[in-house]
Design a protein around this nucleic acid. Structure first.
Lengths: 144, 144
DNA sequence: TATTAATAATTAGTATAACAAGCAGTTTGA
DNA sequence: TCAAACTGCTTGTTATACTAATTATTAATA
């Protein structure tokens, strides 16, 4: 057989991009004025208060330079703010502004609906398989 | 339950990036001097001659601006070249240079080995499920 | 305690990624 | 046959991704 693993990698990459691209297009059409990655950060901040940038980066699986820029953009949109960490002057606590909170609460149900489209026709059992297989791949690669 | 579809999207995105990132690190360590995306293009050119950029873009699932830039880089590395299309002066045929062919033949077996690591512990049945589920997602989103 | 090591965040450089706009060349159709 | 529509490619802009290097601060240790 010819390069099946490369084909799987390509399929994985392509699917992840399709999902993100689809969501991004919906975000744009509906005038959300945030990107998909910015949304991930907003949602995380809504659910967990008092995180510094490194912790936040871990939770959304981004590296710290990438997160720095996302936070810059969110701050310039007035949705988040950096607060000095009370005990470590190297750190910032990132938190939602009142506008940021409002944004999350507005968008949450709409985004749930958008996400649903990707998973149409898949059932409980498929989700279990999906999680199991992708988690296996992640574990294979994280043991470095 | 809370936001399962968003979690699946995040897992998908994260896994795709892990796979790519792992491969990219190996490429670097082994001194391949090409990126993963550049490799995809090289392999496609090795297997299919006489493609123009649009056809090539379709095969590697990238859009034409992205492909233009990848080809620019590959040409500047001396691995590919643009040849005027004999029948359509808007088009270029992209092809491997002799150095490009050598590169593909050198890298192919090593990359097969790298790809294998991600799929460790998964069997035939898992691959079928993987393909089925990801293909379903792709179809859900491509019907726009 | 004086260094050294480690950590949090930023900055810089290169490579994708998506989309929009533009140009040149080709095809269509009245 | 000529103007409109279309196609192939490029360029510009913004955002994300990864690496490496830098700065400021804190922790560790000889």
């Amino acid at each position: 057989m010819e390069e099946p693993y490369s084909l799987y990698s390509l399929l994985l990459d392509r699917t992840a991009r399709s999902v993100k691209q689809f969501a991004q297009r919906q975000f744009k059409e509906l005038g959300f004025n945030v990107t998909v990655d910015q949304w991930l950060v907003l949602r995380q901040l809504y659910e967990h208060n008092g995180l510094n940038q490194r912790e936040l980066a871990e939770r959304v699986f981004k590296d710290t330079p990438t997160l720095t820029r996302i936070i810059d953009l969110l701050c310039s949109k007035g949705l988040t703010e950096r607060v000095l960490h009370p005990e470590d002057r190297r750190s910032f606590i990132v938190q939602l502004t009142p506008d940021g909170v409002k944004k999350v609460e507005q968008l949450k149900p709409q985004i749930r609906a958008i996400r649903l489209k990707a998973w149409n026709g898949l059932g409980e059992e498929d989700f279990r398989e999906f999680k199991r297989i992708l988690s296996t791949i992640n574990e294979n690669l994280s043991s470095i």
